[in-house]
Design a protein around this nucleic acid. Structure first.
Length: 983
DNA sequence: CCTATATCGTA
DNA sequence: GTACGATATAGGA
């Protein structure tokens, strides 16, 4: 490509040979790229795509975009299937290699075809692994005085580095020279085989010597020079166990050395001269790339080779070896989509994402749960080796074990990792000696010090090239963040499940495991006890802890393998990637910041409420003529309806008297004193027990602030929920209640800013149902409830009676909730018939709303789910149930979900953009809380005026650019010293 | 000790 | 009429 030298001259100094390790590239690309990148007819091409991009880049630019580094000779080397000479030495060599995944298999052939399309030499030889061929060619090139770059990252090739031979990892864009080899193995390249022989390798099933990892091996080789010398002097080793192992497993070490040492003298057929780079045949390459639908690369190649892309006809491609894959699991609806671009997919095969994902579900679910291979990692070298394997593989399931369910106080007890189904480990870090009672012992022996372990884990957690897979990552993210590591690049099986199956059940690990893997993980209770026998995880014996923890990581990995392809197959990727996953660190940071509460103010309020309650209690008992537990609905019902025989009592479904607020209010309206006193008492009791008494208990001893926990996956609609404590239900409606809000305060020198969406759900409804009057009203900034009343009852907005507006407001809320005459009647305290008249009247004025509601129900009945404007799905599997009451309930929920859910999506989008926007404007504001349509910030006093417009703008434009709402969003924001005044 | 029910706080 | 979580009581284990 560099020039058009057609006559090959013998290779020599000044030449630069590129040897690409094709086989290992395929596996890495497969795992590094999204699981289901495929052509329009379903042919999986993710790995091929990555490979073609790499080839093109290397041929054009060499290793760096600067000129002068281009290859003169280029070859891609593959493993040929079949056994190699290493199996003769050791029959277990690479014995544990799993079969390649189904959706990777067809890509092996395609990659070889790609090499030919690039006019590049393609080498493989039966009985020899790619690494040996690379070793042989590298040696020959070196001897001829040429430079060699091996395009690979495989540590087995590192023994070849040195002099004019180096390696280059294209995925990390990193050169591997002698220094990098030393970094990895602790010894220079020529000693790498000795270290590998001692340390062994679980992936290739190289046995090595037990108890010796890379670090120890490097020390020993440093000291003795090579394996043979070491083995002959093994008696001189001081450490008993190590000495014994070296003696006992000496032969195994010798075999291992033979296995890892590459053969540099393979009798290859093609010479280096055959690898001379020739000009790319633009038309041929474009035709191939076009057939695979790599549009960007096709265009680039067409431009660079001056080929008119549109005029080139796509190559006919036949893919071997996937008829068998298709037969193993035929697609549900049989017929594959029609082949396009001249690609034959083998006739009957169905390679749609749907079919492949279903196949994957079957495959993962049918794997047996083998927990026997779980490992307890007690040494740094062993942990490093797991981390290395994770780095190599590009993904790893991670789970932390801690002392608390609250991530803000949890201390790290251990970490588990899983690399493949059944291949998991537990790393105990801070298990304590369980002397049962007091004092407890110190740390149990045989654990890596936490700081050391974190030093090893941190680079992996912070490496964007390694995907960390967790179940409920927010928890682990926070724990790890508090221990100094910021996790990037992650997947969360809980959130994948939520994006796919909201409404179909919970998303906890045990539940998902049962549902998808048919496997019931060890219950936490069985490991750590429950009730008064419960102990923190650090008191659990290590072997028991390991069985539990490693299983969690294993199950998480399996769930990921099973669920992740469903995202593509079921169109969940966008929701997962834009609304769920990125919110994890945003919420984690909000939780970590917490909010300040005034402990004294709460304590004083508790006292006030207690006084009020005591006074009311005396009056109530006086009126009742006896003392009873006012907090007991059962006792209260008996007093009111049995003893006092008040009218209007209704039994609940359990046969007890109903004593809800509605009932008591009705009795109060009849002129009875006792029910009103009970209502007042209940209000104070609620405020005291739920808020003023409970909140101080949530103040974190270290931060002096309250840290709620947001759940991303517990509502059907997409809303967040808040717990421990729930800060989304802090009182606001009554005077007494608002006093509690006053206790939520800003730090000294700061203000609280509250910004809330005005009528966001009605606006979303106006958009989705396309209601002209509503849209107009919102555009004109009208009072929407007054406008509704005006439309319905024909009265002017000016001078409208408050009761009229109140009725319209109730109807508007009713509409959002899927309205029923029964519900509206209850809300307004009017007869059912009257409520029905209102509803009819409303639909007469806004027929579009009725249409929208009917359409939504129809859609839900047909599909079992409904969607928000951003594509989030809420499932209602029971919507076609026979029971009319239950069905009506499902229908109302299904009507409400797109409205509530779209609003939830909008505020999520705002939150996702908020931190960056504030930082970009150089503002110190921090987001503290979310209450469905409201965000609360803590803002430096002097920055309030600059901050409010930034917050408001982000929130008002949050739907853009994904959705252009037909209705403007309006945000009101205020600053004050406490939440009550800011709201 | 654990779970279900009733009640009530929020959007 | 939608969506949640916390609390206290009560009843079965």
């Amino acid at each position: 490509m560099t020039d058009d030298s057609s006559t090959a001259k013998p290779i020599g100094p000044g030449d630069h040979v590129f040897l690409v390790d094709g086989s290992s590239y395929i596996f890495r690309a497969y795992h590094a790229l999204p699981p289901l990148t495929r052509k329009s007819d379903g042919l999986p091409v993710g790995a091929v795509s990555g490979f073609c991009n790499m080839l093109w880049k290397l041929l054009r630019e060499g290793l760096t975009p600067e000129k002068g580094d281009e290859p003169t000779h280029f070859a891609v080397i593959f493993d040929a299937s079949g056994k190699s000479f290493r199996n003769d030495i050791y029959d277990q060599y690479k014995a544990h290699r799993p079969e390649p995944p189904e959706d990777l298999r067809p890509q092996f052939g395609l990659i070889r075809q790609a090499v030919h399309a690039f006019n590049v030499a393609c080498v493989e030889m039966l009985g020899f692994e790619a690494d040996d061929l690379i070793a042989t060619y590298a040696k020959r090139a070196r001897e001829a005085g040429a430079k060699v770059t091996i395009i690979a990252s495989d540590k087995d090739l590192m023994q070849l580095v040195g002099g004019d031979v180096d390696m280059f990892d294209t995925m990390k864009n990193k050169r591997i020279g002698p220094d990098e080899v030393v970094e990895k193995f602790g010894v220079p390249p020529e000693k790498v085989v000795d270290v590998q022989a001692l340390a062994g390798d679980s992936v290739d099933n190289i046995p090595g010597v037990p108890g010796i990892g890379v670090k120890t091996a490097a020390q020993l080789i440093e000291e003795f020079g090579d394996v043979e010398t070491l083995l002959q002097n093994a008696e001189t080793i001081k450490q008993k166990k190590r000495r014994e192992n070296l003696i006992e497993f000496a032969e195994q070490a010798r075999i291992s050395r033979k296995l890892v040492e590459l053969d540099q003298n393979v009798p290859v057929e093609e010479g280096l001269d055959d690898f001379a780079v020739t000009a790319v045949d633009g038309a041929k390459l474009v035709a191939f790339l076009k057939a695979l639908e790599f549009s960007t690369l096709t265009r680039r190649v067409a431009e660079a080779t001056e080929v008119e892309g549109a005029e080139v006809e796509a190559t006919e491609i036949v893919v071997k070896g996937w008829e068998s894959a298709a037969e193993a699991a035929p697609g549900e609806d049989g017929a594959a989509s029609a082949p396009s671009g001249g690609l034959s997919t083998g006739g009957k095969s169905d390679f749609t994402p749907k079919a492949l994902s279903e196949e994957r579900i079957d495959r993962i679910a049918s794997l047996k749960t083998d927990t026997s291979a779980y490992e307890v990692v007690r040494e740094e070298a062993a942990l490093q080796s797991w981390v290395d394997d994770a780095t190599e593989q590009g993904f790893v399931a991670v789970d932390t074990e801690t002392t608390s369910l609250d991530p803000m106080v949890a201390d790290l007890v251990g970490v588990s990792l899983a690399l493949a189904p059944g291949r998991a480990c537990y790393v105990p870090l801070q298990h304590k000696a369980g002397n049962g009672d007091l004092l407890g012992g110190g740390l149990v022996e045989g654990q890596i010090p936490v700081q050391k372990a974190l030093e090893i884990l941190k680079p992996m957690l912070e490496d964007p090239a390694i995907l960390k897979i967790a179940q409920n990552m927010k928890y682990d993210w926070l724990v790890l963040a508090r221990h100094g590591a910021t996790t990037v690049s992650y997947d969360d099986t809980m959130l994948i499940s939520y994006a796919l199956d909201a409404g179909k059940g919970g998303h906890g690990m045990d539940e998902l495991s049962k549902r998808w893997l048919g496997h019931e993980p060890i219950p936490y209770k069985e490991v750590a006890g429950s009730g008064k026998n419960a102990v923190t995880f650090d008191m659990v014996e290590i072997e028991r802890a390991a069985a539990y923890a490693a299983e969690d990581a294993d199950v998480t990995l399996r769930l990921w393998m099973l669920l992740k392809p469903r995202l593509v197959a079921e169109r969940g990727t966008t929701v997962y990637e834009t609304l769920e996953r990125p919110l994890v660190p945003v919420l984690a940071r909000m939780e970590r910041r917490g909010v300040a509460v005034d402990r004294q103010m709460l304590s004083r309020l508790s006292g006030d409420f207690a006084q009020g309650m005591a006074a009311l209690e005396a009056e109530i008992h006086e009126l009742a003529g006896e003392t009873f537990n006012i907090a007991s609905p059962k006792q209260l019902g008996e007093i009111l309806f049995d003893k006092m025989s008040l009218a209007g009592g209704k039994k609940t479904k359990t046969g007890a008297w109903g004593t809800g607020a509605g009932v008591l209010e009705e009795l109060a309206a009849q002129g009875h004193d006792l029910p009103q006193r009970v209502l007042d008492w209940r209000q104070l009791s609620k405020l005291k027990s739920t808020y003023t008494d409970a909140l101080p208990g949530y103040i974190n001893a270290e931060t002096n602030r309250v840290h709620t926990s947001y759940s991303l996956a517990s509502t059907t609609t997409g809303r967040l929920s808040s717990s421990e404590p729930n800060l989304q239900n802090i009182p606001v409606r009554t005077e007494e209640g608002r006093k509690i809000r006053c206790a939520f305060v800003a730090e000294k020198g700061m203000k609280l800013v509250s910004a809330d969406y005005s009528q966001i759900e009605l606006r979303v409804l106006a958009h989705m149902a396309e209601i002209p009057q509503l849209t107009k009203a919102f555009e004109d900034g009208l009072d929407i409830h007054a406008m509704t009343a005006s439309e319905m009852f024909g009265v002017p907005i000016e001078g409208m009676e408050p009761s009229v507006r109140r009725r319209a407001k109730a109807i508007n809320f009713g509409i959002i909730y899927g309205i029923s005459a029964f519900g509206l009647a209850a809300q307004l305290g009017i007869p059912r018939g009257e409520a029905k008249d209102y509803i009819d009247k409303y639909f007469e004025r806004f027929p579009g709303i009725r249409d929208y509601m009917e359409e939504t129900k129809k859609f839900a009945r047909a599909n079992g789910y409904v969607e928000t404007v951003f594509g989030r799905r809420a499932h209602y599997p029971e919507i076609n149930t026979k029971n009319p009451n239950m069905r009506a309930f499902q229908e109302r929920a299904a009507i409400n979900a797109p409205i509530q859910g779209s609003a939830a999506d909008i505020i999520r989008r705002a939150m996702l953009r908020m931190e960056e926007a504030l930082r970009h404007s150089d503002l110190g504001a921090e987001m503290l809380l979310q209450v469905h349509d409201e965000l609360i910030f803590e803002v430096p006093e002097g920055e309030v005026d600059k901050t409010i417009p930034v917050i408001t703008e982000i929130m008002e434009k949050a739907a853009l650019p994904a959705v252009q709402l037909k209705v403007p969003l309006q945000v009101d924001a205020r600053a004050a010293d406490n939440w009550n005044e800011a709201h």
